[in-house]
Each structure stands twice: as C-alpha cells, then as structure tokens.
Design a protein around this nucleic acid. Structure first.
Length: 955
RNA sequence: GGGCGGGUAGCUCAGCGGUAGAGCGCUGGCCUUACAAGCCGGAUGUCGCAGGUUCAAACCCUGUCCCGCCCA
C-alpha cells in the first residue's frame, strides 16, 4: 500500500532501523527504539548556566530506595512527573527533573543481612567495616536497577545530575546540616522513652511505627498485695488489668482515680512486688485512670509505656528498664532475666498463678505498635538518642503553606499537613544501624560530647565517634538542595532552588514532604518547592492494598512487556502452591482474570496513559487491567489514524496553514483549539486526568470518527484518478497535516514513544527539531484564533441529522449495503440551506440512494418513508428515510412511539421547570430564554412526530 | 476519640448548582480497502438515606448509615 512509499520519503531520520507502519500497532517494536535516541539528542538535559534565559521548571524526583524494584507507585510517579516535565520542556522551559536513589537505611541493612544469613554469617561476625563494605558492593551491583527500569517507562530526568544520598557530596551536606543544627541548639541528645524495634535493634521515629488495630489479645488481671494495715474494712489487695503482663516486672506504682470510692482507703498505701524486692505506692491520677475501665486500678510501668512514662514524670516515679536491646529481659527482671519477651509473658502469668495472685483473663482487642520495616512489635524503651527540635521549624513550615508560598494540591491535604505539624513531637533522628550517615559526634571521658564536621585533631584516642547513624529521612529531607551542591553556593543551587513542583504519594506527606519543607526553610530560607502535588495510592482492582502476603502485587514491567499469570504469581507469592496463588491473584483482578492466561504486552505508553487518567483526588486507585487494555486500543487508533492520514496526504509537503475556509476544516481546527485549552488547563492544575480525557475524546470522537471520515472523499482520488473536489484539496491537506502533527505533540507528554514514532513520519515544518520532545507545544494561545463556537454548534446539528438517519436505518435493520432515499426538511430556511451545503457528507455517512433532498417543512410525505425529528430551536429538522418494503407499519409506529416517549419525558421536565413558581422571575435571563427555546424545539418536534405517527399506515 | 476521603449504569470511575456521563461489560447490525484492538446503532441509574437552602440540587448545608485511610 501507499504507506511503504511514504516510509521511503526523507521525513524519517532512522530509515534503516525503523520498521514499516505495520498493522496492528506493536509497542514492543516501537518503544525500545526511542530511549537511546532521546539520550543521544540531549532531550533530557537541563542547564544551570546563568546565561540561559529560559524560565526554569524543576521537579525533584522522590528518590526510590536502592533496595527497590519498580512497583506501581514508582510507575505512577514516573508517569505524572514525566508528563509534567515533558510538557514544560516542550513549552520552552529549562526543565530539571532531578533523579537519584535513597540509601534506605533499615530496608537496605535488612536486605543485606538476609543475604548474609543464607551464607550463615551475621553482620556481627563480620564487624562494622566489613559489613558496610559489603553493603556498598551490593549497592554497586543492584542499586541502579530501578533507574534502568524507569527508562523502560520513558522517564526523562536529567540523568547527568543523578545522585545517591550516600554520595560524598550529599554526605557532606548531611554532616553540615547536623552540625549547624547542633550549633543552633536544635539538635540535642537526650534520654527519653522512645520506640524500639528489638528485631531491627534500633530506635524508630513515631512515624515509623504502624499501629495494627484490632489485634487479638487478652486482658489479664492480677493482684498486688497491699502492705501494712489500712483498717479492717480496707482491701488487702488491689487488682490491676494489663495486656502486657511481663511489664509488671518494671512496675513502680499502681494508680487509681482520686474520686473512686472503692480505693479511697488505699490512697498513699504501698503494694509489694511479688517477684522482685520492691514495694511501691498506690497513687491517684485522674489523667491516666479511667475508673470505668477494667478494675479502675492501673499498673504503672514508666519505662515501657508512653502514658505511664508521663504519669511517672508527674509523680516522680522510678523508671525501671527491664529489657535488653534484643527484646530479652535484663537483670532488673530478677529470675526472669534472659528470657525473650514472649517467653517472659507466659512465665510471669504462670508465676502469678502459682502465687495465687492471678485473677483471670478475658479476650481483648488492642492496638499493637509494629515496626514499619520488620513488622516486629515495637517496645517503648528508655534510651539516649539524638533529637531534632521541631517546634519553630514546624511553625515556619505551617506558615509557608498558609501564606501561599507553597501550595498543596489537592487542597484537602492542607488540614492533614496542619494537624501533623501542629502536634509534632521532636524527631528522634539517631538509628542504631551500621548503614547510613554516621553521626558526626565524638564521645570522650565523663560523658563529654563534641560535634564537628570532622574528627577534631586534638581529640585523644579515648574519644570515639558516635556509632549511630541518622534516620534515612534526615538525608531525604535535604534532597531539594543537597542534590544541587549545598552547602556550596553552586550555579545549580542558584538556578534550581526552589523547585517548582514536588509530586509524590500522600503516604509520605509527613515522612518526606513536611520535613523537606522544614529543612528547606531552615537552611535555604526559602520553601523547597512552590507546589506539592499529591496523588493517590494504587491498590488492586477490589480496593485492597497491594502486598506480598495478599499476592496481589503487579510489577509494572509485566504490564509493559506482558507476562503469564503463572509468572506473575511466582513473583508475588513465591513458594505458595501455584493454583492457590493464581486464585488469589485473579480474585484481586477480576478484569484481568477475563484476559485468559496472562497480560498481553500493553506497552509503556498504554500503562502511562492509564495511570495518568486517574484524578489525584482519588485516594485509592483501583488498578483495572481492562482499562489499560482500552487505552492500548486508543494507541492503536492513533497508529491507524496516522497511517490513513499519511495515505491521504500522499507526498504532501508541509505548508503553514492559513485560516481555513472549508467548514470541516474550520470545525476540526476549532475542536483542536478547544482541546488544547482543556489539556492546558488540566496539566496546569495537576488534573492530568482531565488532559488525558480531553485528548482521548478529541482524537477518537472528533478527529477519527468525523473529520477523517468527512475528509476521505475529498482527499481520496476517484477511480478515474481525479479528485472529487480539487479546489478543496490543498486546504484540507494543510489542515489534516496541521491537526495530526499538532495532536501528536499535544499527546506526547502522555505517550512519548508512540507519538515520537509517528511524528517522525508526518509532514511538519522545517523548523522542527530532531525530536518531538523539543516541542513546541500546542498552547491555547497558539490555537485560540481557530476557536469558533458557532461552527461547532452547526456541526453538532449536522452530526445529529446524520445520526438520526443512521439510527432509523439501524433500528429497522436495513442492510448495511443498501442505499436509502433520504429527505431533509426544516421550517428554517437557514437550516435547510446549511444542511443542503453538506449533502455530500450526508450522502456518504448515511449512505443514501442518490442525493438527499432538502426542502421546507410540509405536512405531506411520500409513501414508504419513515420520519425522525432532530429538535432545534430555529426549527426542528425532519429526517425522512425511504424504507418502502423494508419496514412494517407496526415497526414504524413502535419506533415513533419510542421517540415520542423520550421527547415527552424531556418536555415534562422542561414544563415543570418553566412553570415552577419563581423560575421566570428569579432565574437568570439567559437560562429562561434558553429553556424556552428548548421547550419550543421539543414541542415542535413532538408535533411532527405525532403527525408522522398518523400517517405511518401509509408504509 | 479526632481528622480526611468515598458511597453515581453490572464493574472501574468522571461530573460538584441549570434536562445524568466515559471506559469496560451487555446487546442488535456490519469482515464498509486506517483500524474487528474496529465501525454504525441500542438498553441500563428514585446519583447511600432523611431533612434543609434555592426559581432550580448528584452537586451547597445539617443529620444519619455504611466503606476506606490517617492521627491519638
């Protein structure tokens, strides 16, 4: 076919490697070829040169963990950020999408420890230095995998600026930040009750503790014997209830409510601990004790419970730590020392029973604090750690959002952000890990501490560096400026700080976004970014969170390249029986289950377009594979429409278009202009979903369904080799080429591969650069002159007339091949004239026998015709289709009745509205006028239908 | 206990003050020389429930019931 001839035209820079435009569209043949091309042409490059006068657009990419393999969340980040970055780049911005990876302290250490465990080695066997060396080796081998995976999705960050949080320059920034914070009195060391994960053997910040609600437990009751004699009527014992019996080894008080009459006699008395040589007081505390809960008496363990800790401070109680760092009990636990905490719980209960102090137990649901990384139960524990004061930093971060210096989109999140910062506690930043930024503090004799950028030379050998490292999120919080060279005053820092947009999932609003706000304001004196764009979390099709245990994880690359479900579940549920894993997976994705044995290769563009099509207000995004399939069909549509267009354009050489005179050309240009405006509005407001929808509808429903169909007869030569309407050919070719090329550019940020592939082949101005990615982008301004609502309104009428005739054909099951006579009438001479002007389109799209006729309305009608009405205020249009011998009287009456029913329903609604008291007086005038026009159109249409029904027997 | 979302067609979701929408699914007819991953048609909703504001409410307000998430 003609396509191959066009392939040989000199439009294509890569003729030797580019396959023909085979049908159907195969992303596997197209996508792999373009990434290297973009890199070679420097598409992704930004410049920090002060002399560059372009406006700047900066997006810091949330650095994925080096442990990470690409998951749907990453794919979503990639898609949205890449769309925004490409969009700006095409519009002439100096765009920096800052890539990199995060060292992910705990996560990485756990991964490498697990590897070592297979070799039968622990990190303690190796020692710190060797272990850290091993982690570095691991990171060199696998840490960049995720960056390679992002390329498959078409991500376009400036790779030349890629950073890793443990790079020397970023590590230096971390040290500098720590030292300055210390010098400013914001970073301090303190002994406090903190969250301790015995499995990771490190402290955690409040945010790293996840509370598991509804855990099954029991409320265990036991008695403490009261010491001394409180009088004959006073109780000899006091019964307390607890969900953690083993912590009684650290009890230093029993609390009751001051007003509780049951315990009045015991105020000030002491109880004896049954297992350790200790007695402690019965105190009164209205804050801690709810007299209605349990027995109304509460055991107090200041060293292992946050509420009890506060109570201890109020009453000056002793804090007795009973735990070792690995979760076993220490010497304070007396005879229970050395036991694991779980074992100790059983042992304590048994011992209490033996002493006759147990008072029974009942089932109880509780909230269990769990470590975000290991899943282990977190123990509150007294420990000396480094803390960062949050108060004043949090205030500035709050102000920045309230004053509009940083905008959070969607705005619903502002309240959540506020609440977090308003109630924030100081941040425990030290971690007892080996992998991370070691704290730049040195400990000397007598508890002396020195904090410095480097080990001070005058410190003796007895001074040792603090073994702890910093929370991973500490270095992440510096990301928007540490990646640009801070603390040096680099050109990049001057050019690219603050960033424009920070896009991420809402799940790290506290972990990352709020902390970057605080650190950015503190160190740079300016917000780190102008907008925070938050998107929802991707969950499975039934709304469940994706997780290994659930067996519903989808690897985005499996969607891109295709994969059998068997292979998919091998990854999601390794080791599980295949049938069971498959069943779980298919239950999680009902629409995928209908696809047969696996995912077809949807291609990166289809996955991206789908991810971009969910609105950010959606907190949970239920990933429906069917939807990806639908979008792949859309890409195929673009592919084929381009093939057709190239065929219709032949050897057409680009001419800059002038304002078209032909109606269809005016119409498609107007629709294109409206679409550019809608896409721009969507992209600008972080409603990428609206941009995708506008592009989809335009390209498919306007450009393909109508414009290409209307233009075919004009641009296709007839059998005798001549054009049917030679005078219309040049302008139509120009317009087709213009809209096609513009559409590809318009959609490029959303589907970079396909648009590049096709754009390389379509006619375009000589001024265009090597890649579509260089733009320019079709903007509302560049298209606005073509926008013409009156043309669009006329086109809608024409479309309605054609559709009416098609409906009649279809409803009466007229053979597709049969030509039918058609007659169009209206009481409006203008309408008749307009429609007559489009007789050619009507003839072709309805497939009429001979030319349709156009005339003023009259009551008479030929035998054998069926009548349908298109309501219009200026005078409804009657569409008469000759169906002699093709339809019975009954069928026609039934069809007219259906039409009447519809119109009656609309008319009733309109009458109700118009006759409602106050409507005419109080509604805006244009609404009243419009409603009256609509009603008139309906009444008119109805009259014609009623008349038509009367003569239906003529059939 | 506090906060934030959500409940619209069988499914996944738009719409957020002027006559209910899309994709998928369902269904009738078409292998019409771009596309069957398609084309031309069709059916399908008391917009969670109850009040209120308004000339007008899926949309605003109040209450209420479910579902989800976050914080304590």
């Amino acid at each position: 076919m003609t396509i191959s001839r066009i392939d040989c035209a000199n439009r294509l820079p890569m003729t030797d490697t580019t396959p023909a435009l085979d049908q159907p569209y195969d992303p596997a043949k197209v996508e792999p070829r373009w990434y290297a091309f973009w890199e070679k042409n420097g598409v992704f490059a930004s410049t920090d040169a002060a002399s560059d006068a372009r406006p700047v657009y900066v997006v810091p990419m949330p650095p994925p963990n080096v442990t990470g393999s690409l998951h749907m969340g990453h794919a979503q980040r990639c898609t949205l950020e890449d769309a925004l970055v490409r969009w700006h780049r095409m519009r002439g911005f100096n765009a920096l999408w800052q890539p990199g990876t995060d060292h992910a302290g705990i996560a990485t250490q756990l991964v490498v420890e697990r590897l070592l465990a297979r070799e039968g080695v622990t990190r303690h066997d190796m020692g710190r230095e060797a272990f850290v060396a091993r982690v570095w080796q691991w990171r060199r081998e696998t840490g960049d995998r995720i960056l390679l995976q992002q390329r498959i999705l078409g991500a376009s960050p400036d790779w030349s600026r890629a950073k890793f949080t443990m790079d020397p320059d970023l590590s230096r920034a971390v040290t500098e930040a720590f030292v300055r914070l210390y010098e400013q009195g914001l970073m301090y060391r303190a002994t406090r009750l903190i969250n301790w994960c015995p499995e990771c053997r490190t402290s955690l910040s409040d945010l790293e503790v996840e509370n598991e609600e509804g855990a099954n437990g029991e409320l265990f009751e036991f008695a403490y014997e009261v010491e001394g004699d409180a009088g004959p009527s006073a109780p000899r014992e006091i019964v307390v209830a607890t969900t953690r019996p083993e912590t009684m080894l650290g009890d230093t008080a029993v609390a009751v409510h001051p007003d509780d009459p049951r315990y009045k006699a015991l105020h000030g008395k002491c109880v004896r601990h049954p297992f350790v040589e200790r007695s402690f007081p019965i105190i009164t505390d209205a804050v801690l004790v709810d007299p209605k809960f349990g027995t109304g008496a509460v055991k107090v363990t200041p060293a292992h419970d946050f509420n009890d800790f506060a109570t201890g401070k109020r009453h000056d109680l002793e804090e007795i730590n009973i735990l070792n760092l690995d979760g076993t009990l220490n010497a304070n636990a007396g005879s229970f020392a050395g036991m694991d905490r779980k074992e100790a719980r059983r042992a304590v209960k048994r011992a209490l029973e033996e002493r006759g102090l147990a008072r029974g137990s009942k089932p109880h649901t509780l909230t269990l604090p769990r470590c975000q990384r290991s899943g282990g139960v977190v123990e509150p524990m007294i420990s000396t750690q480094w803390f960062l004061k949050m108060g004043s930093m949090a205030e500035r971060a709050l102000d920045a959002v309230h004053s509009g210096k940083t905008e959070i989109i969607p705005a619903e999140w502002v309240k959540t952000y506020d609440h977090f910062l308003e109630s924030i506690q100081d941040w425990c930043v030290s971690r007892q890990l080996w992998w991370g930024h070691q704290i730049p503090a040195w400990h000397g004799p007598d508890g002396k501490v020195v904090v410095a950028r480097e080990r001070p030379k005058d410190l003796g050998p007895e001074w040792t560096q603090d073994p702890d490292v910093l929370d991973t999120w500490f270095s992440s919080a510096l990301w928007p400026f540490s990646t640009l060279g801070w603390p040096e005053r680099t050109p990049a820092l001057a050019k690219f700080y603050p960033a424009s947009d920070l896009e991420t999932g809402y799940d790290i609003l506290f972990f990352w976004v709020a902390r970057m706000m605080m650190m950015g304001l503190h160190f740079m004196g300016e917000v780190p970014f102008r907008r925070v764009l938050l998107s929802g979390l991707i969950v499975d099709e039934t709304g469940e969170k994706m997780g290994k245990l659930r067996g519903n994880v989808i690897d985005p690359l499996d969607l891109v390249h295709g994969a059998s479900f068997v292979d998919v579940v091998k990854k999601t549920l390794p080791g599980a029986p295949e049938a069971e894993a498959l069943a779980k997976f298919k239950k999680a994705y009902p629409s995928a289950a209908a696809m047969g044995g696996g995912f077809p290769a949807f291609g990166a563009d289809a996955v991206r377009f789908t991810l971009a099509s969910y609105p950010p207000s959606n907190k949970r995004i239920a990933l429906a594979p069917k939807r990806i399939e639908g979008n792949r069909h859309f890409l195929n549509k673009i592919w084929n429409a381009t093939r057709l267009s190239l065929d219709l354009l032949g050897e057409h050489a680009w001419r800059d278009p002038i304002a078209p005179k032909g109606f269809y050309n005016q119409w498609i240009r107007s629709r294109f202009a409206a679409t550019c405006a809608a896409v721009h509005a969507g992209m600008d407001a972080f409603r990428v979903d609206e941009a995708t929808q506008a592009a989809y509808r335009f390209f498919w429903n306007d450009f393909c369904d109508w414009y290409l169909e209307l233009v075919k007869p004009i641009l296709r030569k007839q059998a005798d080799g001549t054009f049917f309407r030679p005078d219309q050919v040049p302008e139509t070719q120009d317009t087709l080429a213009y809209v096609l090329e513009g559409s590809l550019r318009l959609m490029h940020p959303l589907m970079p591969f396909l648009t590049e592939e096709l754009w390389q082949r379509v006619p375009k101005p000589a001024s265009r650069k090597a890649s579509i990615a260089f733009g320019p982008y079709p903007t509302p301004d560049s298209e606005t002159a073509a926008h013409d609502p009156s043309v669009e309104a006329q086109m809608e009428l024409l479309q309605a007339v054609i559709s009416a005739a098609r409906t009649v054909r279809s409803e009466h099951n007229v053979d597709k091949k049969a030509d039918v006579p058609m007659r169009v009438r209206s009481s409006s001479p203008e309408t008749v004239a307009f429609l007559r002007g489009h007789h050619e389109a009507i003839r072709l799209l309805v497939k009429t026998a001979g030319e349709p006729s156009f005339e003023a309305s009259s009551g008479a009608r030929e035998r054998g015709t069926t009548l349908s009405v298109v309501p219009a205020a200026a005078g409804s249009v009657e569409v008469l289709v000759g169906l002699k011998g093709l339809v019975t009287k009954d069928e026609e009456v039934a069809r007219i009745d259906r039409e009447l029913k519809k119109i009656d329903k609309e008319l009733a609604a309109m009458d109700k509205k118009l006759s409602a008291p106050g409507f005419v007086d109080r509604a805006p005038r244009e609404v009243v006028v419009e409603s009256r026009q609509q009603r008139q159109a309906l009444v008119d249409a109805r009259e014609r239908l009623v008349a038509a029904r009367k003569v239906a027997e003529e059939l």
